[in-house]
Amino acid sequence: MSESSVRLNVFKTYKLYVGGKFPRSESGRVYEVSDSKGKWLANAPLSSRKDARDAVVAARKAFGGWSGATAYNRGQILYRIAEMLEGRREQFVREVGEAEGLSKSKAAAVVDAAIDRWVWYAGWTDKIGQLVGGANPVAGPFFNLSTPEPTGVVTVVAPQDSSFLGLVCVIAPVIATGNTAVVIASEKSPLPALSLGEVLATSDLPGGVVNILSGKADEMGPHLASHQDVNAIDLAGAGPVLAKELEIAAADNLKRVLRPQPVDDWNADPGTSRMTAFLETKTVWHPTGSLGAGGSSY
């Protein structure tokens, strides 16, 4: 026996992230993922419509707890995701570099921007309410208060090219406000998204709040768009033909649809529009309780 240390590499089996667990595709299928130069990187699960269905069930189950959590708590958890990512920065720099053909320094910049994006949205969780809600002046002795409420289960077709920063930029605003998400990762480079699942699983994020599927958007998309238990769909990564098809399918149960927006630079200030796209406004009236004989007064 030779003393030389010839060691077999241990390859990672990339798996889906659904309901806080890491299942393989129900279909048993995988597809080859290669880097920007065509070199094989790994096999990723090729999810089927049944995986998508299971993900919706998981997301629906998680919705009550997540939307009911305090905004402060959600902010803490989103910040925790950033902390966990920071600890696995090297891994993500390598994966993003391979997936998008970036140099190490450029990939590092992308990962740093993604981490900062989680921190940005972590700060927004308990402030968006003041921004888009508030007290409305009404003609009567009532307090009239509008508060933003999460829409529900949101399907996200993640951007195809920006496989990590773009992904974070579409997931974080959805869950920051209390929605739960079913994400179809970039078909070409799903590995950073699948690894993100491992980070989310260790960030106190309740299972099912984010569910990550890899595979073909045009295979799963129509089923998710027509799914009666999905409340909204973000078409960020859908091409024009697919986006139109999904928008028509989504009309059936009056889903909220966020059409694909041209994004030149995912680094740019995201604003609040991605959060408000998946919020609904609830307005309540409440008597001021001080109706004296001489009329109302506060």
Binding site: R53, V56, R60, H223, S226, H227, Q228, D229, V230, D252
Partner: peptide, 14 residues
């Protein structure tokens, strides 16, 4: 049953 007759996944809202 709704899934089979409409082709769309149904949900508990229905």
């Amino acid at each position: 049953r709704q899934k089979l007759s409409t082709g769309r996944y149904s949900g508990p809202d229905y």
